[in-house]
Design a protein around this nucleic acid. Sequence first.
DNA 1: ATGCGTGCAAACGATTTGCAGCCGG
DNA 2: CCGGCTGCAAATCGTTTGCACGCAT
Lengths: 130, 130
Amino acid sequence: MNAPPRMTRQRTAVADALADLADFRSAQQLHEVLRSRGDSVGLATVYRTLQALAEAREVDVLRNEDGESLYRRCARREHHHHLVCRGCGRTVEIDGPTVESWASTVGAAHGFEDIDHTVELWGTCADCRS
Amino acid sequence: MNAPPRMTRQRTAVADALADLADFRSAQQLHEVLRSRGDSVGLATVYRTLQALAEAREVDVLRNEDGESLYRRCARREHHHHLVCRGCGRTVEIDGPTVESWASTVGAAHGFEDIDHTVELWGTCADCRS
DNA sequence: ATGCGTGCAAACGATTTGCAGCCGG
DNA sequence: CCGGCTGCAAATCGTTTGCACGCAT
């Protein structure tokens, strides 16, 4: 059994920041947010905490077009997809229509197993356009 | 107007390697393939060439789960998706069903523009499983 | 000739990790 | 008190870039 994570000041700070922010943010951006809030936390700790949260499925992770990891505390815990603004990270949770079953069907048809799929939408939101 | 690329030994070597290989490969893997073939090419040149080929849409690029870029010379030039083996990069080109229109519809519905989408399937092929 | 293309090594930027000290349970 | 957490700095690692030289055109 994994011991539950310790409630440290830093972990709380990161969790709080994620709870407030509604958009996908990089570890570095979160680190900056924390710093400006006064809840300064070491960058390495931010990375470690986000990794832990992601593993515990408490936050969603995805990679932007530059390959950076972005994190976000999503409303629904079930599997879903996102429409993310390239500029500010603003996010809209969306339902992948039939994607799920389609994915495993196609995969199986070609002899592949453990099928996983990536379905994300990127765009520019109204604010970032003006 | 952009001048057409010069036909150098290195560019030819990279293009040939891509033509032979059917699977998605990283720049470093290609560099190694070239080396073992005897067509040694500088790693930086491999990166630069792949970048150029990608820009010219002669090869497809996608990021694996580690954020590395993988390249492949796809059969069809039109937009399509892939089912890629996590182990060996073996690839099957697939049609995204209604994804395209679905993407822009959803995007527009939320006030987003310049919608782009990522739809890729990852799995383990029969060979990599045995 | 001309300047794009190359190789090499240094520079980069995001992320990870080693290690000594701290503090939550 | 004890071992997981932290912070910091050093180490990774894929990828990019500066620069002097070579070669395709």
